[in-house]
Design a protein around this nucleic acid. Structure first.
Length: 455
DNA sequence: GTGCCGAGACTTCCTTAACT
DNA sequence: AGTTAAGGAAGTCTCGGCAC
């Protein structure tokens, strides 16, 4: 009996301890789940479909293996909580929620984590060289974290070999290896690193150290502090009032110093929106208050107000294109539509079109240019129909050649067909070989394995 | 200075289609 | 059948415009 079947009837998983608990280097739940699967010689897919999902209280059709969705189990949503509870029961390991943002729910927005995997290649290499367990840190998942302080390098998200983008959970994934080509994702310290400007490094040092401090907090403390943020607006109001009094500032001064708009503050105070960590880090920077100060409602501030680094002059996460930009986008979209007039043009899907226009998701252009999207879809269908027609025509012609060879008493090998159609490169296109196989199946011809004697 | 609304860019959750 | 990608709906955060 294979191990997955055995485990289907079992209720206990190994009590695999998570790495870095209650430290700033704590691992992420996705990393833990991948290691847990490997420890049981199971695919991550089997761990979920055969063990985790059947133990959930309510059914879920959510696919955590969808490239951009796996991050959600490191986040703070209800599903994460359910998965953590099941894993805790099965492994008997307590406090697995420390590997997620579950107990920061009232304090943090749900959009602080990246959708794809980022890592420090030098950290991975260090684990391997020192014979330590290879794992991925929860810290690397944060959108605001760009660098590894220890190795003074940028975090990466592409395989060094095949350059493919990496995601957090893969059906057969193993921590430290590329999803696509299984290349080792670590890198020796001797490899030249991209130089990080000093000012940017200082800002990132503030960001990373702030988040590390938060991640060190244990479960009990996280729960206690989190509850203090149920009344989000009141807390923010208190912080603003304290800054006004301490530094003798007006609201407008605070806005310009922190580079946060008045409307944004309004949304926080009214409890309509939670501040992004990026905004909170900026506000904390000028008053020298850390995220941990805020989270634990210790609203003490530095003696003097300080200015933000010069590089923080615009919000990198929410930049709006100007009106001229919109016209340019429209023109570019028209250009793409016209390309579909040519049958030889490579067909683009909505995601490819979005990326060409500088957006990361198709939703944006779907909403922005709905009429053009309709035209593109219609053209995509036309293109597909034309391709099908070409395939049918080719199939018809190939069939005629095969039947002619058979009537002449000749076995229709690839070589004989090539000679007959006088096109030596015909089977260089793999789909033509598939077509031949299809026709042989239809005509009841057994394809011979090629040997020197065949022809 | 405060409050509201909608636009813009983005994410999460989920379903469906396409590929292997 | 198993796997992957595309797409839709609903929700989140920031910002500009406007009224008071």
């Amino acid at each position: 009996m294979c191990i997955s079947k055995k485990l289907q009837n079992s209720s206990v998983l190994y009590g695999l301890p998570p790495i870095g608990k209650s430290t700033s280097d704590i691992e992420s739940l996705t990393s833990y789940v991948s290691r847990l699967s490997s420890a049981h010689n199971l695919k991550v897919l089997d761990l979920f479909t055969k063990i985790v999902y059947p133990n959930l209280e309510r059914e879920t059709s959510t696919n955590v293996f969808q490239p951009t969705q796996s991050i959600s189990i490191n986040n703070s949503n209800i599903k994460t909580k359910e998965i953590v509870d099941v894993l805790s029961n099965l492994t008997t390991i307590k406090d697995l929620e420390e590997l997620t943002l579950i107990n920061f729910h009232y304090f943090m927005s749900s959009q602080e984590l990246r959708t794809n995997k980022f890592w420090c290649p030098y950290c991975l290499q260090e684990y391997r060289n020192q014979n330590k367990i290879v794992y991925e840190k929860l810290l690397w998942n944060f959108e605001v974290v760009d660098i590894c302080l220890k190795h003074r390098c940028k975090l990466v998200n592409c395989c060094p070999s095949c350059k493919s983008e990496q995601f957090l959970l893969k059906r057969k994934g193993e921590v430290g290896l590329c999803d696509k080509c299984a290349t080792w994702l670590g890198s020796e310290n001797t490899v030249a690193k991209e130089k990080i400007p000093d000012e940017y490094f200082c800002w990132q040092k503030w960001v990373v150290e702030n988040i590390q401090e938060l991640l060190k907090i244990n479960t009990q403390e996280r729960i206690e502090n989190n509850i203090r943020w149920i009344d989000y607006g009141e807390n923010i109001k208190e912080i603003i009032e304290m800054s006004k009094q301490k530094y003798k500032l007006k609201m407008n001064d605070i806005c310009s110093l922190s580079n946060i708009s008045r409307k944004t503050f309004y949304n926080w105070v009214s409890g309509k929106r939670k501040a992004s960590l990026y905004s909170l880090l900026k506000f904390g920077y000028i008053t020298n208050a850390t995220l941990k100060n805020y989270f634990s409602k210790d609203f003490n501030m530095g003696l003097e107000i300080r200015s933000l680094p010069l590089l923080i002059n615009e919000n990198p996460f929410y930049s709006k294109p100007d009106k001229n930009e919109r016209v340019k986008l429209k023109e570019e979209l028209r250009k793409i539509i016209n390309e579909y007039e040519e049958i030889s043009s490579p067909i683009l899907n909505l995601l490819q079109i979005s990326r060409r226009l500088g957006y990361t998701r198709p939703t944006t252009i779907r909403e922005k240019f709905p009429e053009d999207i309709k035209i593109i879809k219609r053209k995509q269908n036309e293109y597909q129909r034309e391709l099908n027609d070409i395939k049918d025509k080719k199939k018809h012609e190939l069939k005629a050649v095969i039947i002619k060879l058979l009537n002449d008493g000749i076995y229709p090998s690839e070589r004989k067909i090539l000679a007959e159609i006088n096109n030596p490169s015909f089977f260089w296109v793999s789909t033509n070989r598939v077509l031949l196989n299809e026709l042989c199946n239809e005509l009841g011809i057994v394809r011979r394995k090629w040997t020197w004697k065949n022809d």
